[in-house]
Amino acid sequence: MLEIRLHGRGGQGVVTAAELIAIAAFKDGFESQAFPNFGVERRGAPIQAYTRISKEKIRLRSQIYEPDFLIIQDDTLFGVVDLFKGVKKETKVVINSSKKLNEIFSNKLPLKKENFFIVDATKIALDILGKPIINTVMLGAFAQFSGLIKVKSIKDALREKFSGEILNKNIQATEYAFNLK
């Protein structure tokens, strides 16, 4: 079973991103589960959401304490939330930031350099969507970096949540991020 923890702020679509990963993984033939860290949702407040992906039926209901993947949607959370709590040596991390790795971490890196993938999702979202809603950009980057879910499945998942112009732009944003590197 693989466990993904998503960090962001209220209004950035953190919960929706967790759900989209679960829907996409299900479309790829996996069992999956997505749930929010049940906060009293407010715009701007730190939010967590979780996704589990497995070949077998998922019964576990507890929160995710030792994630295999971290998706960090907002670099202002560094120093505010203990983002790297419970990470393992092999945990892979996708961060939305305009900064470089050594600018984000002035001290020692919490994990090896290869475990990080940084994408300036806010800029991409502003260019494509015209709004700083970065979750679908992050999903494209996550699909690329993790190799876990097909970009086609994310697009199919998006079709279940959005329609019309918003859908098309989100698909474009996902694809753009997927083709980075």
């Binding site: 759900e19 679960a22 829907i23 299900f26 069992e31 999956s32 589960q33 997505a34 749930f35 929010p36 049940f38 998922i58 209901r61």
Partner: peptide, 10 residues
């Protein structure tokens, strides 16, 4: 509440 009502699962 939340554990089932707000969870996506097959």
């Amino acid at each position: 509440g939340f554990v089932l009502t707000h969870t996506y699962e097959p």
